[in-house]
Design a protein around this nucleic acid. Structure first.
Lengths: 394, 394
DNA sequence: TTGTAAGCGTTATCAT
DNA sequence: ATGATAACGCTTACAA
């Protein structure tokens, strides 16, 4: 392994000259510079990272903490993760990924041993042990997420509270008075993922304030969720909800949208759909859904930016909180509330259609496939009967 | 920051004693050990990683190279990635992730600068620049994948060639003589992802040898794939394929399975479906599909194991190739070929059903949603007509 | 403009 | 069983 001494010898100069050529911290004659550069090239010299760091230089490594846990949305987190890695690399930093179960210990280890220059916390929960322990890390630390207590850690997040209130307002403004709320996976509430709780709380509170009637779904679990049932429950209310706000993931949202359409409802004419705290951009959807999204790029860029600036300026950012204004992406699934949605009027009496079919189901295969298919069949009859009533076939 | 000197001072011993207490490379009296340990505890001392490495110690960091590229299957690669990270951590190694576009430069940088002890290459293509440059890395390097030339790099992969041949044999043995091959995304062939090419080649070659007639899909692109059309094309052949082998990703496979069922075909009675080179385990499927899967855990465990052993034994593994026997996961989507599948006989004339509906479609909304719905509608009629023919409703 | 040498925090060799 | 110290490869203050 060629070291700085070898370069110096080859170039016929002293080691300090080589060092200064590399760092540019001292003027060097162009003749000498050339010799040195040539020697470096020739020997394929790359400075030893450890020796540099021993001299107090930065390591240019950032730890990203993202402990794996049950039921994590890989897509979603890898989006954050990839974005952060990209941002870090663009700024000349490598990324050390910490996924182990004992995150705090890992972070202490890599910060105390001077392995990394800073720490980024992903997937932060409402009460996050990593954030709570931030004071003990000897390096700057930024969290994406806003836990309850965060006095020793910089936090950056979308303003989910505002998102909740704004969503309620948005639907109200469109004339909706009855809305359904499709919950996120129960597991997300249980682990107290800050954003799901915050959004839901504020949404419900605001809805209550302005007189928006909310029908909230039961607990949701990706494995067992029954979209037809949820839709059927929702539509059997009187008056029925004219809008659906969803906190759930893509697959469940897709199933629900499918079930809504299967129930003969057109989006957005008959029912508005709004997905909040999701990241649908690259997801294949049954039908595009308007969204108040996560914004991995924006969040990660801001977080990484302030982390790196804190590192390089050597100035603490502990306790700083940055809340980002939520964005709204219009994908055409929101419209003014339809009139006359009570049962027995010009609207569809979908529950009847479902009910009729449900009797049949008892005899049918219990395979999910068939259940879904039969949902489609009942649409067929729904549109047929609509047609008989002289309504346009659309 | 407390260093080893501080510990020595506090404990009232010399620095070497502290070092030996930590490394255990020299017998120390228990009395002294206690004093030292207490001091370490008291000061929260953690050795400086760089100083350790300057003394020739291992860094316990492994670089994982996984350049981001267009159209990469995030789910799939994050599976490999997460597995590797997990394996590394279990062995006491941290993971440095290299995702930058200039992978070779990054790897050279981190190996030459002694930042990492070894390198794992993920997402290796048929002609992989990273593998080709392996001789220049000054650290052990293992690739998951089997590129054309690999003399300076250890390679570990599933035996996709064998998988291809075996899949052909498997279907043949079940009596299938006509099979459809649903290609992977075109972009995967274009970037010469080793496994897609290898599998397809060997599958086709073996099919040819044993007399298996293969109807291969056109180019596939996630964004524009039309499952109904593919199924319709496939079923319009005479005799129609009785089995489908798929190299495509989950979403496309799901769409295709849905379309098959929508066309009135039961899996596996009417058509067998086999997915190869995929990783469906945790994916929500329309219907379970038997699979010759990727095996991230197994591959990563083996790869990481040999990498770490090469690191710790300081013995080269360049050029070693390990091919893993492919596994078959039975999810009940494979059965013996049905008899009488020619058009006009006891089978379904599905293309007619599609054809009839297609005329209607011209007037319908062009939204994808409606297209899919109508596919479902045509099932309804298909099963109805079957019923009229006195067949069991299932 | 360039060279010399101290020192970063460890580990390992040589003493005791 | 323990201590003193050289060495690792680099950066930088000081010297020339």
């Amino acid at each position: 392994m060629a070291g700085i001494k070898d370069v110096a010898k080859t170039a016929g100069v002293s080691v300090s000259t080589v060092s200064y050529v590399l760092s540019g911290k001292r003027p060097i004659s162009s003749k000498t510079t050339d010799k040195v550069l040539k020697a470096i090239e020739e020997l394929g010299y790359i400075p030893d990272a450890s020796a540099q760091k021993m001299r107090g230089q930065l390591n240019h490594i950032i730890a990203i903490s993202e402990p794996m846990h049950e039921g994590m949305n890989q897509m979603q987190y890898s989006a954050y993760f990839m974005q952060s890695a990209w941002q870090a690399r663009s700024a000349g930093y490598d990324v050390l990924l910490l996924t182990g179960p004992d995150a705090v210990a890992d972070i202490e280890r890599v910060t105390h041993s001077n392995l990394v220059d800073g720490v980024l916390l992903l997937d932060v929960e409402e009460r996050d042990a990593r954030v709570a322990a931030a004071a003990r890390y000897r390096k700057p630390c930024v969290a994406i997420g806003l836990p309850k207590s965060h006095k020793d850690c910089a936090c950056i997040d979308i303003d989910f509270a505002k998102m909740g209130r704004r969503s309620a307002d948005r639907l109200f403004a469109l004339g909706h008075r009855q809305v359904a709320l499709l919950r996120a996976q129960e597991i997300d509430y249980e682990r107290h993922a800050g954003y799901v709780l915050l959004f839901r709380e504020e949404f419900l509170a605001r809805a209550d304030e302005i007189g928006l009637d909310v029908f909230e779904s039961g607990p949701v679990d990706n494995a067992t969720f029954d979209a037809r049932r949820f839709v059927s429950d929702m539509l059997s209310r009187n008056p029925r909800p004219t809008a659906l706000v969803s906190q759930s993931g893509v697959s469940i949202l897709n199933l629900t949208v499918t079930a809504l359409m299967a129930a003969g409802l057109k989006i957005p004419e008959d029912i508005s759909v709004l997905s909040c705290g999701t990241f649908l951009r690259d997801e294949p959807m049954r039908r595009p859904v308007s969204e108040e999204p996560f914004e991995p790029e924006r969040l990660c860029a801001i977080a990484m930016g302030s982390l790196i600036s804190s590192i390089e300026k050597r100035q603490s950012i502990a306790g700083e909180v940055t809340l980002i204004d939520p964005k709204f992406i219009d994908r055409g699934s929101l419209a003014s509330a339809p009139r006359n949605v009570g049962s027995g009027d010009g609207g569809f009496s979908v529950s009847a259609s479902f009910g009729g079919r449900q009797a049949d189901l008892a005899q049918a295969d219990s395979a999910q496939a068939d259940v879904e298919t039969s949902a489609s069949e009942s649409i067929a009859s729904a549109s047929q009967s609509r047609n008989l009533e002289g309504e346009p076939m659309d």
